[in-house]
Simulated scan of single mutants.
Amino acid sequence: MLPERLKRRVIYESNWIDLYADTVRMPDGSIIEPYHVLHYPHSSVSVVIYNNKDEILMLRSKRYIAGGLEWEIPAGRVEENESPEDTARRECLEETGCDLEDLSYLGWQNPQNGMTDLLVHMYAAHVRTEKDNFDKNEVDSKIWVKRDEIMDWLKSNVIHCGVSMLTLLYAERFYAK
């Protein structure tokens, strides 16, 4: 038996995120009210980009919520009538200036399934071409980092973005280089 939603109150809805206060009956019959739910109307993608020097492209993103610069991989929202694969290619071009080849689907994740239904499709690819143009509003800089060093970054907690962390680990384990 799974928890069951008995009713829902809308707190906020938009094209980006919705916030609901649900009334939920738990398997033992107890009621949780309110059970706050963040709903994302669109899924997202994250992409690990490799080059032929055994390196991974990392972005230093400008993050308002975190209040600073954060090391991440390219990621973004799947737009209406756009496939996750097309989104991965578009986001990488916008955020890094990279055109991709050998784009491979690694799986999907729900980074915080206790309170949100956000779905993130994970990819890995190789860079075909790279230009210096990228979204300067969102990205401060980009650098190529040796794969072994990325694992050190993860171990040392240099990367704080959970989506980036898990996608990097998946790519290192499951992407055929």
Rank of each mutant, 00 (worst) to 15 (best):
K131C: 13
L103N: 03
V158L: 14
D152F: 00
E94L: 08
D135M: 10
E4A: 06
A124I: 09
H160N: 00
I32G: 03
I143A: 14
D54S: 12
P74H: 05
S14I: 08
D132W: 14
R63M: 14
S164I: 02
V163C: 04
L169G: 05
V145R: 07
A125E: 06
I49W: 03
R63L: 14
W153P: 05
Y64F: 12
A171W: 00
G97R: 11
R77E: 11
L100Q: 04
E130T: 11
I150D: 04
N51E: 07
L59Y: 06
S104G: 15
E13S: 15
V48T: 08
S164G: 07
V48L: 01
A75N: 09
R25F: 05
A88D: 01
E91I: 10
S43K: 04
L106M: 04
L69Q: 12
M122K: 07
I56H: 04
E72C: 06
L106R: 03
R147V: 15
P41N: 02
I73A: 01
R8C: 12
S43Q: 02
P27F: 03
K62Q: 07
L119N: 03
P34Y: 06
D54E: 11
F174C: 02
Y170H: 08
T167N: 02
V145H: 05
L6V: 08
W71T: 12
L100W: 03
D54R: 11
M165A: 12
T116Y: 06
M151R: 13
S104H: 15
E85A: 07
L154N: 03
S156M: 15
S46K: 02
H160P: 00
Y12H: 14
R63I: 13
D152S: 11
V78P: 05
T23Q: 12
S141H: 09
V10K: 08
A176I: 15
W71G: 07
D132P: 15
S46D: 02
E94R: 11
R89A: 13
L59R: 07
L59M: 12
Y20M: 02
Y12T: 08
T23F: 05
W153H: 03
V145W: 10
L119K: 08
I73L: 01
I11T: 09
N51G: 13
A125D: 05
D54F: 01
D152P: 05
V48N: 01
Y40T: 01
V24Q: 04
M115T: 15
N137I: 07
G114A: 12
C98Q: 07
I31E: 05
C98T: 12
S141M: 10
Y12N: 10
S156P: 04
E138H: 06
W144T: 06
A176S: 14
Y35K: 03
V78I: 14
V120F: 01
S61H: 10
L169D: 05
F174D: 03
E70N: 10
E138T: 08
I32S: 05
H121P: 00
D54T: 07
V48E: 05
V47L: 04
H36G: 11
Y175T: 00
T116K: 06
K155L: 13
I49N: 01
H36Y: 15
N51P: 09
K7W: 13
E13A: 14
V47W: 00
K177Q: 09
Y175H: 02
D152R: 11
W144S: 00
G29Y: 04
E79F: 10
V47C: 03
D22P: 03
E138K: 07
